[in-house]
Nucleic acid binder design. Sequence first.
DNA 1: TGCTAAGCGAGACGGTACGTCCCGTCTTAAT
DNA 2: ATTAAGACGGGACGTACCGTCTCGCTTAGCA
Lengths: 208, 208, 208, 208
Amino acid sequence: MPTGRPRDPQIDAAVLEAVLGVLDEAGYARLTIEEVARQAGTTKPAVYRRWPTRQHLALAALASRLGDSPVPDTGCTLCDLGEGILVFVAAFRRIRPGVLAALFADCAAVPELRDAFLTTLFEPPRTAVGRMLDRAVDRGDLRADVDRALVLDMLSSLVHHRALFGPAPITDDDVAHAVEALMAGIAVDYPRLLAHSRALSDPHHLHT
Amino acid sequence: MPTGRPRDPQIDAAVLEAVLGVLDEAGYARLTIEEVARQAGTTKPAVYRRWPTRQHLALAALASRLGDSPVPDTGCTLCDLGEGILVFVAAFRRIRPGVLAALFADCAAVPELRDAFLTTLFEPPRTAVGRMLDRAVDRGDLRADVDRALVLDMLSSLVHHRALFGPAPITDDDVAHAVEALMAGIAVDYPRLLAHSRALSDPHHLHT
Amino acid sequence: MPTGRPRDPQIDAAVLEAVLGVLDEAGYARLTIEEVARQAGTTKPAVYRRWPTRQHLALAALASRLGDSPVPDTGCTLCDLGEGILVFVAAFRRIRPGVLAALFADCAAVPELRDAFLTTLFEPPRTAVGRMLDRAVDRGDLRADVDRALVLDMLSSLVHHRALFGPAPITDDDVAHAVEALMAGIAVDYPRLLAHSRALSDPHHLHT
Amino acid sequence: MPTGRPRDPQIDAAVLEAVLGVLDEAGYARLTIEEVARQAGTTKPAVYRRWPTRQHLALAALASRLGDSPVPDTGCTLCDLGEGILVFVAAFRRIRPGVLAALFADCAAVPELRDAFLTTLFEPPRTAVGRMLDRAVDRGDLRADVDRALVLDMLSSLVHHRALFGPAPITDDDVAHAVEALMAGIAVDYPRLLAHSRALSDPHHLHT
DNA sequence: TGCTAAGCGAGACGGTACGTCCCGTCTTAAT
DNA sequence: ATTAAGACGGGACGTACCGTCTCGCTTAGCA
């Protein structure tokens, strides 16, 4: 049972907010405990008591921003995949370019941090899209022998790659094209899927 | 016409070697000019004369490691793509995980560095694979209306993603699967390509 | 009321010791903050926090070596002068030749440092011998009209000169001879002083 | 027989002049080969070809300034000593305070430089005054058993000490007082000397 | 109510690495 | 062979900021 003076919860919130402010305005390289403490109106030891390193701090702050992604389930495999991917594309767009790469690089060497990074920031949308693929297999839209993990990687890596290294984040059209090209290779009956998608969403933007 | 004492080329080599040593053993975060100079048996000013920042230094060192990739051209589209990608997969495998991400994050904000990074480290294999796609279109293996840039992104991002964030670098089998799934969606006559590939390489490892 | 982490007194001592080590073994020209920090097992900022310049550092270290000189007071003017001078001669002998000259040269241009040098290193023995001269006047051993400051300069400059520029530091005999020659010119009754001195100290070494 | 392009003697002169300029205006600590070369309108290698070190350079420059001191010989021991000392006092007054001390400190560790320093800068006036003392002994003005080297040291050290460490260089009156106090202790018949001196120089300034 | 233990703001600490200055040397092309 | 010119290899500089520690005070829960 903890004795002594309890921690001031306002400091927790103020620090996380300050971290997001620094990351958005200056990037991960400028994320110093000293600056965070200053912007949060507190002191370095108060921060260090809560998060042992800059990495933990950044992870906690970014996790608090990227909330749960709603998973669309309309019955249209192509539509769901496209929309589902765009949901987490939108989430990543809210993080300043370079921040994720720098943070990951800083975490890569420490298994605990590496796992925390992946679990916190990369896993949720990946799981969501994975569930869509499962449903597509169940519906008979997708060949059952496809390596779902690989397909997930191909889709998410495209998003991440363009977010991290591209001249610009991926566009909605690019997502649609990519989904279509990939699905054409692994769907049971791609023309039917496409027709279904068009019937549902025309004159929506999500088609070739 | 350059006058004055010429630069000692041994120092150039020793510094680049020291940089690779530090990157391999300790990662980009531990790459300090002071440590590099110490390991190279020289001093900081000698390093600063050659490369103005840590970023330039790391770029030069990594570029010296990733030599030119030979582009296979056997006439078999599937084989060439698979082998060509594996060539630069192998190159990236020689770089400690996290190093590229950290370096890119450090370069992202400065256009000159960002361009240097992409040109030096990402462009060459991308160009090589792009040429393969062009040849495939010329041969009539690939539909002419595909967005080659997007296909390139899908392939290279998969490699990079697994190199950067994956629990392990991508395997040869995964590359083969990915190429096949993707080509199935965008080839003019995929079964013919597959048959050709098998005829050539059976009992090679590069097939489903 | 001082707040913050208190300074580690062991570092103070280690640094001063390291300074004396460098001065003794290599001289003032080799006294660099970096080397001192290295030998003291600490770092440059820790040194700079304590002493702002190399000059302050050297002054502090030398002052810590030259402790207070006890002032003899036996009633014998000749003996006291001779012994009193030898006390600080001995002190200067503990400093490597050239160190004082170089340090002073470095301090000469800055009044604060110049005063600190003189006050710390030259003043104490000078004051002590000055008190002896006062007592000698009080006792009627010395003519009251002599310029005490000039006499002090003649004695101390002899010591310093030989310490700084001589082929060897001044000897005890030289001190005795110099005191006798000078006192012969300014004493009220020199033969009496000499007789008194011999009566006291025979067969001591302090006589012609 | 020297072949090749002959050395430009104007560079020798320009360099020495530049050295004196730097020493007078900035002191020994600021005497760098680079600055000397710049002020002399030449380059560093041209300086290094002529004088191997900064010490040699400073010695040569100062020696070129301190010309031969004329030795007065009027027959009046007190007058000659006083005037003779003032001659080299005047010479030292032309050198910025601290320069000699710093230079000596820099030379002290190398026997060759140390000897060059003493021979070039300190010996000439000392020899001159030494000759005066010899004449005084010959004339019967001075006791033959005095240690001439010690007397020389007492006089010259007084001058040097005040030049180096005093709040002001020694005054003419101080020199007179010091000579008189010292001679009173070692002359054969001091009152006679004093009378002779006054007879010659009254109402000159050189007496008590 | 008084004691104890932990959190708090404040700020100096020990230390790493920085980027720069200027040293004395070396190389080149021309004289 | 010496010259002017200028870049080189290198030692040391003084600084910025890191993450840690110590302080004196404040704030609860336990006795």
